[in-house]
Amino acid sequence: MKEEITRVLEAARSEIKKADSMHDLMQLKSRYIGKKSILNGLMQKLGTLSKEERPAFGKILNEAKVQISELLLQRDQEIKNLKYKKTLKKEALDLTMPSRKREIGTLHPITKVWQEIEDIFISMGFEVAEGPDIEDEFHNFDALNTPQDHPARDLSDTFYIEDDVLLRTQTSTVQVRVMENHKPPIKIISQGSCYRNENDASHSPMFHQVEALVVDEGVTFADLRDIMNIFVKKMFGEKIESRFRPHFFPFTEPSAEMDIICVKCLGRGCNLCKGSGWLELGGAGMVDPNVFSMLGIDSEKYTGYAFGLGIDRIAMLKYKIPDMRLLFENDIRFLKQFK
């Protein structure tokens, strides 16, 4: 009987070694240690042995069973490992092959700057106001303290639809419309297209401006300086300083032009700033009392400031776009650069 057990054990060992699937293992398990297995058959025969022999054979039989279970388990692990290694081999890739690209579009650089400006000012409590592109003379000139015979009204500078209907030459028109319809406190920005009858390398007949207007009790020139400083640093970076130069605009008093440190050379002087170290960004000033009184706002009680900036110019400075014409050509190779 002992020999029989040894024989079974040897047979099992060699068969298990050869098994190479889970299915094979299951079958072997059933054949050798299952209910109807050879070993179980031998177990039945134990009864025929003498009392003295029984424990020793029982022990050997059990050990054989344990051994076979272990062999099965071991082979099971081996098969799983083999399978895993096969998978690795099968799934191996050339990781340098090109990826699947999802095409994402782009916003126009002007829109990107436009939205950034809106967000900066909205975060500082401004609201966004809108006005028409096609305006009347009152909102574009009269209300902004520009006299009838002012050279700015020349046909050569302004696009006219009718004698007193024109394409706005600046977004300051929206200031007027807001002050007509709302009582102070007013704190708005407005952006949009403006038009001037000129078309050359540095002038586009349509361009974009942003305009801000703040009217309240106690608004000062210092507030204007502050807001410009904050804006410039948020837009161009912490290193960019700004300065005001006295200037003339009919609708502000005092009026100023604003410069920022050249974004290219940081003030050292370069071709962009023509060696001066400064770039002109826009105009600003305290709202002229005449504008207030024309719109029925008490200029003793209220003060205010306004400024206007060229968005196209900001976009060009920010993205280092060398030529204004690129902005309106809509070359996809240009547009795609502004991710």
Binding site: R102, G105, T111, S204, L327
Partner: peptide
Amino acid sequence: VNNGFSEVINWNF
């Protein structure tokens, strides 16, 4: 933009 479109800006004329 998310669907792959790029924005153009033309003169309003």
